[in-house]
Amino acid sequence: MAMSLDSASRELCAKLGILVVEDSPPMLRLLSTVLAAMGFQRVMEAAEGDSALKLVREEKPDIIVTDGAMAPMDGYELTRRIRAGGAGEDLRDMPILMLSGHATQQHLDQARANGVTDFIAKPITAELLYRCVLAALTNPQHVVEMRNYRGPSPRRRLEARHSQNMPEL
């Protein structure tokens, strides 16, 4: 039975865990606040990829929102490791949204090759984040499975999302 998202989105988010990976403390606070306002009851935080990977293994979030450039492990490497099974076989195809201030073609190609689900150019707006997260949760997942990789096709088209290019809902 189809149900209106107006009433179901909160029910959905309340059942899901989201991990936010961001090395800038004010940006981390902003994202966690906004995602909690969207309805996520379980918002986990990590400051870089290594600690994020540990949290993914232990807490098994349903979706990740990660920054691109971080040290020592960046968001690209975090994504690559998750797609390779480094956080567990059952989590390889989880949706991973990348947020970055660097949205050049080179960054998009790297994100796509490593298995990023969607790429959001900073700065974000409430509506942009809402639409991107919801699209990742509600769209059927087209997954490619091969040796050391399970995730969105690394050959597909990936465009930066911004306020003029938001996902259709």
């Binding site: 029910e11 959905l12 899901l16 969207m38 949760l137 059927p140 997942q141 490619v144 809902l169």
Partner: peptide
């Protein structure tokens, strides 16, 4: 490679499909 089409996370969690429509109230709260 193997190509698979999996149901959405929403469908797997809620056990039903969602008709997708942006919720202005949720965006307002964000």
């Amino acid at each position: 490679a193997h190509f698979l089409r999996l149901p959405s996370l929403a469908e797997r969690v809620l056990g039903r499909q969602l008709s997708i429509r942006p919720d202005p109230r949720a965006i307002g709260e964000m």
